[in-house]
Amino acid sequence: MSYIAIIITYIIVSNFILTQFLGLCPFLGVSKNVESATGMGFAVTFVAAIAALITWAVQNYILIPFNITFLQTVAFILIIASLVQLVEMVVQKVAPPLYKALGIFLPLITVNCGVMGIAVIATRTGYNAMESFVAGIAVGLGFLLAIFIMATIRERLDLEDIPKPFKGLPIAFIVTGLMAMSFMAFDRALLNNLLG
């Protein structure tokens, strides 16, 4: 599978947020304004890409040779958690306002099923190192795309007169549903047509 196909697959065709419904927690939690949403998107991209690469290495050089693939989940979580710690330190050092805006959701990338998802899916699909890495980036960018669109919509929704019971999260879920439906237009057939 070519890299372009991988990128299009994970950004659009099987966008983790809008077609696979993975990692919805930060998606709804940090999408209140565009700035922190973008920051979160890049943080997830970074973690997903590095995690995909390292989990590939661990899978192929440690878990498979020693025949202990049953430890996959534990090992992957260990890797992702450590990476998130690192990202947290970097963000706190480099961009304190972003660190404040992301709040609890930054450490929560640890349990972001999107990041865990790409690590597992990449090994299941049998990607090589570079493909895993690219898939990780693509998943992150897909997340970034979704959360960016969501944040712009929610910024406008703040100014609208929404009935009280729908204010806040309920309307956000409805918007997510509508976005997911529109993303259904991108299916595998489209990918085949595009890439011949």
Binding site: I62, F66, I68, L71, I79, S82, L86
Partner: peptide, 20 residues
């Protein structure tokens, strides 16, 4: 297998811990 599982996870953990 048990030994490999134990060692690999401990070493991974130690590696990440020290790097952090």
């Amino acid at each position: 297998t048990i030994l490999a599982a134990f060692l690999s996870i401990s070493l991974l953990g130690a590696f990440f811990g020290i790097s952090l």
